[in-house]
């Protein structure tokens, strides 16, 4: 074997890597024809590859994936929730429904939506409307919350409307200030203002 040129072994490997040029391949083949030692060498190399490749594939055990998943760091909770909702659209719909339902329950618990007004003897209530009838005179301030006010007579004082409309009939008059409040925040602001007004009156009693 020692008499053969070194490049022949190199050619063999290049051939096995499918990188031997066509000309060199011819040279290798003709050499293999003549030299038995190189032929054996080449045969042994091919056999080695065949033997290595003959080893059967081994498979992962059944619980492999489960074991890996159990060892992973915990995922963020929100993702789990999002996936749950994506997989079950009905659950998502139910969740939306619950939120809306909860909202409406919450607001009805908030007693701010109830119809209320200052208790004065000579006014008439017609459904959600406070009526000051023709010829009647209301002495003092009037507050109507979540309802309408129809003035046919006279109010000698301030009128405050919260979430409601005010209708003036032909002969109706209001001598004081009129304030209309539509939202919770304004209602709060109105309360704060009235507190300060009272305080102001308290500090300047002589005026």
């Amino acid at each position: 074997m020692n008499t053969c040129p070194d490049k022949m072994v190199h050619y063999m490997h290049e051939y096995l890597d499918e990188e031997l040029s066509h000309e060199d391949e011819k040279e290798l083949k003709s050499h293999l024809h003549e030299c038995e030692a190189c032929r054996t060498h080449f045969h042994e190399l091919k056999r080695t590859i065949a033997l290595v490749q003959s080893t059967s594939h081994i498979n992962a055990p059944q619980d492999f994936t489960e074991k890996v998943m159990n060892r992973l760091p915990k995922e963020k909770k929100e993702v789990g929730m999002r996936r749950l909702l994506q997989r079950h659209p009905l659950l998502a719909a139910a969740a939306v429904f619950m939120v809306l339902m909860g909202g409406s329950v919450f607001t009805s618990w908030n007693d701010g939506n109830e119809f209320a007004f200052t208790k004065i003897e000579n006014v008439v209530v017609d459904g959600q409307t406070v009526v000051v009838p023709e010829g009647e005179v209301v002495e003092g301030d009037l507050v109507v919350r979540n309802g309408d006010l129809r003035v046919e007579g006279e109010i000698k004082g301030d009128v405050t409307m919260i979430n409601g409309d005010r209708y003036m009939a032909g002969g109706g008059t209001i001598t004081g200030d009129i304030e209309e409040i539509d939202q919770g925040f304004e209602w709060l602001w109105y309360n704060i203002k009235s507190v300060f007004k009272d305080l102001g009156g308290f500090f300047q009693p002589n005026e």
Binding site: H57, A60, F64, T65, V68, R83
Partner: peptide
Amino acid sequence: QNAFGEIVELYKD
């Protein structure tokens, strides 16, 4: 994380 489980299934062997 579940998507990773599928990757493991594909390449484990």
